[in-house]
């Protein structure tokens, strides 16, 4: 049972990986963000989260098999 985490742009550089398989599934997006902040010493306050390619709220529940992407403020165009 695991979830896949994806990191982009400066987060990818800060963490040093673009993809992490996490063996434990936190209950919510908020809980996951807090764990990642603590583990990697990064600030995710302005970072959006997408679960399975859909933007998700902090209170969204996570389940095994989810792909969770951390999306810093975008700068396309």
């Amino acid at each position: 049972m695991m979830i896949t985490l994806l990191f982009f742009a400066h987060l990818q550089e800060a963490i040093g990986q673009e993809r992490i398989e996490m063996q434990y599934v936190p209950q919510t997006v908020k809980e996951l963000k807090q764990q990642i902040e603590t583990r990697y010493g990064i600030d995710l306050r302005h970072v959006m989260v997408a679960v399975n390619e859909e933007y998700a709220r902090e209170e969204q529940q996570l389940k095994p098999g989810d792909t969770v992407a951390f999306i810093p403020p975008v700068s396309g165009g």
Binding site: A9, V74, G76, G77
Partner: peptide
């Protein structure tokens, strides 16, 4: 596009680099 599409650009200058996205005008919800 500047609000919701997950694309990022990294500026490369003569004296350094930076991921764009921390300015107010590009902060997205």
């Amino acid at each position: 596009i500047k609000q919701i599409v997950p694309i990022w650009k990294k500026e490369h200058w003569e004296d350094g680099t930076e991921w764009v996205g921390n300015q107010l005008e590009t902060k997205a919800y």
